[in-house]
Simulated scan of single mutants.
Amino acid sequence: MARMHTRRRGSSGSDNPAADEPPEWSDVDADDVEERVVELAEQGHDPSVIGLKLRDEGVKGTPVPDVKNATGKKVTEILDEHDAGSDLPEDLRNLMARAVRLREHMAENQQDAQNKRALQNTESKIRRLANYYRGGALDEDFRYTYENAVDLLEDDA
């Protein structure tokens, strides 16, 4: 599949190994994993960072290679059950934060054509992603604007 805003082809991604159960060296209780996920979320970590921390640090010293194998639920599902998740999806929030930073940079550097193009591309990605999430994770009448993004990021922080 080609990349969205370039003429180059994308690189293929790696696949997770096909495993039905956690490895025998990672015998962590599902409840302990869920508690650790909620604890990390309350510390302000995103779902992707939570997965990395569980992989690297683990629960009680035992690494968790795959949260879904260990608990039967994804990290975001666990966060939704315990009301510890964010109001915005992580990918949309990261793109909005990038757009806000680019907009602030453009206010100081009006002649920066490369970042002007980067801002246009980022806002285009945000609009596409907002269409995808509209009606589910986002309100039906959600529209992206710079002011709206700043307000949402301040509320989410």
Rank of each mutant, 00 (worst) to 15 (best):
G13E: 15
S26H: 08
V64R: 00
E108G: 07
E104Q: 14
G58D: 00
L79A: 06
E21W: 04
R127A: 11
D139P: 05
D91S: 15
L153T: 09
V28W: 00
E21C: 08
V100M: 06
D91R: 14
Q114Y: 11
A118C: 01
N115F: 06
V28K: 02
E154F: 01
D112N: 09
S26F: 04
H105Q: 11
L52W: 14
A130Y: 07
D46A: 14
V33D: 00
A149F: 05
E57K: 09
R93L: 10
D32T: 06
Q110F: 03
I126L: 10
G72E: 02
L152Q: 05
A99E: 09
T71P: 06
K73L: 08
T71E: 02
T62F: 02
A84Y: 01
G10S: 14
A149N: 07
A41C: 07
A84S: 12
R128H: 10
H105A: 11
G61N: 10
E39K: 07
E104D: 15
V67M: 01
V64S: 02
P63N: 07
W25Y: 15
R36W: 05
L119K: 01
G10C: 10
E21K: 04
P63W: 02
R117A: 14
G51L: 06
E77M: 02
A41E: 07
K74R: 14
T62I: 13
H5Y: 14
Q114F: 09
E77H: 04
D83Y: 12
S11N: 13
F142S: 04
N121C: 11
S124R: 09
N94G: 10
N148F: 08
T6A: 07
E24N: 07
T62N: 05
R36H: 03
N16E: 15
Q111R: 13
L102N: 02
N131A: 12
N94T: 10
E123A: 06
G135L: 06
E90C: 01
V64I: 11
D56Y: 12
G136Y: 08
T76R: 04
D15K: 10
E123H: 09
Q114P: 00
W25E: 12
P17D: 09
Q111T: 15
A118R: 12
Y144C: 01
A2S: 15
A18L: 12
V59D: 02
V49D: 15
R3N: 15
S124T: 11
N131D: 13
E21D: 10
K116S: 15
V150G: 02
P22T: 05
D15C: 01
D141F: 00
R8S: 12
L92Y: 08
E34Q: 06
R93Q: 15
G13A: 13
D27W: 05
T122S: 11
V100K: 08
E81W: 03
E104V: 12
V75G: 00
V67S: 00
T145N: 10
H45N: 13
P63E: 09
D141W: 00
I78K: 02
Y133D: 04
T71A: 03
S26N: 05
I50K: 03
D151Q: 09
V75D: 02
V37I: 15
T122M: 02
R101V: 03
